[in-house]
Simulated assay, not measured.
Amino acid sequence: MIAIGSDHGGYALKLKIMEFLEAEKYEVKDFGICSEHSVDYPDIALPVAQAIINNECEKGILICGTGLGISIAANKVRGIRAAVCTDSYMARMSREHNNANILALGGRVIGVDLGLDIVHTWLKSEFKGGRHLTRVNKICEIEKNFLK
């Protein structure tokens, strides 16, 4: 299952991504918002991150105006690796090299077509392990020491 959430800056793109995911037969859990009313992105990032950590959802997609704020908030949760991606290459690398479990997008930065391509690439890419696992494990060690 894919967890998805956005603030007001990512709401329009979130709707398009949800349509795409449902057409591709992904199961989606929407963590809000349900309108373009202003909200604080940490209030969306936290429940999406928690759904992944608690194994309710396999991966997550978060969208705010730039993708930056919502990814920073999500990355405060131990075990989350949220990656802001502005192109499909970044999306593929975030999965293959970093084992990102949340994709963060900027609704005011990328268009719908690019956003859908990024989502498609990210979901189809797999973690390569090997030397990348060593690096991800080092990130986990940093979390253990600083995110208590």
Results as ranks from 00 to 15, higher is better:
residue 136 V to C: 05
residue 81 R to C: 07
residue 28 V to Q: 06
residue 138 K to D: 14
residue 136 V to I: 02
residue 73 A to W: 00
residue 95 R to G: 07
residue 140 C to Q: 15
residue 16 K to E: 13
residue 27 E to N: 14
residue 70 I to S: 07
residue 30 D to V: 04
residue 87 D to S: 10
residue 140 C to R: 14
residue 86 T to R: 12
residue 21 L to H: 07
residue 69 G to A: 08
residue 65 G to Y: 03
residue 43 D to T: 02
residue 118 I to E: 11
residue 46 L to F: 06
residue 145 N to Q: 14
residue 13 L to S: 02
residue 86 T to L: 11
residue 15 L to C: 13
residue 56 E to F: 04
residue 75 N to P: 11
residue 65 G to A: 11
residue 127 F to M: 03
residue 77 V to L: 10
residue 61 I to P: 00
residue 127 F to K: 06
residue 114 L to K: 09
residue 106 G to W: 01
residue 41 Y to A: 05
residue 36 E to H: 15
residue 146 F to A: 14
residue 94 S to G: 07
residue 42 P to Q: 10
residue 85 C to I: 03
residue 84 V to P: 02
residue 75 N to T: 03
residue 138 K to I: 15
residue 40 D to F: 00
residue 129 G to D: 10
residue 144 K to S: 15
residue 57 C to Y: 06
residue 30 D to Q: 08
residue 76 K to A: 10
residue 6 S to C: 10
residue 55 N to V: 08
residue 94 S to Q: 07
residue 51 A to P: 03
residue 49 A to T: 02
residue 82 A to S: 15
residue 22 E to G: 12
residue 5 G to P: 00
residue 87 D to L: 07
residue 132 H to D: 08
residue 104 A to W: 01
residue 14 K to Y: 04
residue 25 K to A: 14
residue 52 I to T: 00
residue 119 V to N: 05
residue 120 H to K: 12
residue 53 I to W: 05
residue 49 A to G: 12
residue 15 L to W: 05
residue 29 K to R: 13
residue 57 C to R: 12
residue 105 L to E: 06
residue 114 L to A: 06
residue 83 A to P: 00
residue 23 A to L: 13
residue 36 E to R: 13
residue 90 M to P: 01
residue 103 L to C: 02
residue 72 I to N: 13
residue 96 E to F: 08
residue 51 A to I: 00
residue 123 L to V: 03
residue 48 V to G: 07
residue 8 H to F: 09
residue 138 K to S: 15
residue 66 T to P: 00
residue 19 E to C: 11
residue 15 L to G: 12
residue 21 L to K: 12
residue 135 R to C: 10
residue 51 A to Q: 05
residue 48 V to H: 07
residue 58 E to Y: 12
residue 34 C to D: 15
residue 28 V to L: 05
residue 126 E to Q: 14
residue 55 N to I: 03
residue 147 L to M: 11
residue 36 E to L: 11
residue 41 Y to G: 07
residue 74 A to L: 02
residue 98 N to C: 10
residue 112 V to Y: 05
residue 85 C to K: 08
residue 63 I to E: 03
residue 142 I to A: 08
residue 114 L to T: 07
residue 52 I to N: 03
